[in-house]
């Protein structure tokens, strides 16, 4: 087994262990330590994959799902520390990350095999556009997890729910500019690669829909102060659209982004 896969599978195993540990020991220290360990293993796995293939390690669907999961662990770690010990963040967040990694592992072998970079991907914009897009996707995923948690706490514990809602806003306030940057750098790249900065390609159009949904959330929250369930419904809708943009578009709709 190659080293990057070994690290990845170790991280995967630790995710499962951490999930069960979170039900047995409500220990902040153990959970934080394990999350840090998983993050390190994830980063090592991605970095090594880059070295093993002598190229940027986030090029196909398999690699991008792993990248998003590892970033998700970082986000979860941050949120867990900031929200001071809401154990359900881990209990709810880990299965979502587990699911993302699970999807990565059941992909057809062609999608998992490292390939050479096709001519369209040979650009330094790849690093910038792809990284920014996936950082935002990861942030939106964790915002979605927290959104679900908010609905769970909304009637039980108003204070916790309020803190969770603020964290949802903070994560989206971070991820939204990053997504904007990702879309914009994609437009610059498209101008170099395809001769047009915007082609109404399905990936582009659905990225725009994702952007509009989160812009809607931010407008209603900042201007109208919609902090309750309605705001969270925007976040959930944004996440569903984002998943479709990321995975659905690739498999269901033909377009220029068919490689990722």
């Amino acid at each position: 087994m190659i080293l990057s896969e070994l690290f990845l599978q170790s991280a995967f195993l630790l995710l499962i262990i951490l999930f069960f540990v979170s039900f047995v020991y409500d220990s902040r220290r153990i959970i934080i330590s394990l999350l840090i360990l998983i993050s390190i293993l994830g980063v090592l796995s991605i970095t090594l994959r880059g070295f093993e293939n002598s190229r940027f390690p986030v090029v196909n669907l398999y690699e991008s799902l792993i990248f998003i999961s590892v970033l998700g662990v970082f986000f979860l770690l941050y949120v867990f520390i900031k929200l001071k010990n809401i154990i359900w963040i881990v209990r709810l967040g880990l299965p979502v990350l587990f699911l993302i990694l699970g999807v990565a592992t059941i992909l057809p072998p062609w999608d998992k095999t490292p390939h050479y970079l096709i001519p369209a991907l040979q650009s330094y914009w790849l690093y910038i556009h792809v990284t920014a897009s996936f950082v935002s996707y990861s942030g939106f995923t964790v915002a979605f997890i927290l959104g679900i948690l908010f609905l769970f706490y909304n009637k039980k514990n108003r204070v916790k729910a309020g803190n969770i809602e603020i964290m949802v806003y903070k994560i989206i306030a971070f991820s939204f500019p990053v997504l904007t940057f990702g879309i914009f750098t994609g437009a610059i790249w498209a101008n170099y690669a395809w001769g047009s900065y915007w082609s109404w390609d399905p990936k582009e159009t659905w990225s725009l829909v994702t952007w509009i949904i989160y812009a809607g959330y931010l407008h209603t929250r900042i201007i109208r102060g919609w902090r309750g369930r309605v705001g969270i419904y925007w976040v959930i809708a944004g996440f569903i659209v984002m998943v479709f943009t990321f995975i659905g578009v690739n498999y269901l709709l033909p377009g220029l982004h068919s490689y990722l």
């Binding site: 659905w206 829909v209 949904i213 659209v241």
Partner: peptide, 11 residues
């Protein structure tokens, strides 16, 4: 409305 239209245009 724009999301809906753009989404349909993407499909």
């Amino acid at each position: 409305v724009l999301s809906l239209l753009i989404g349909v245009g993407g499909i």
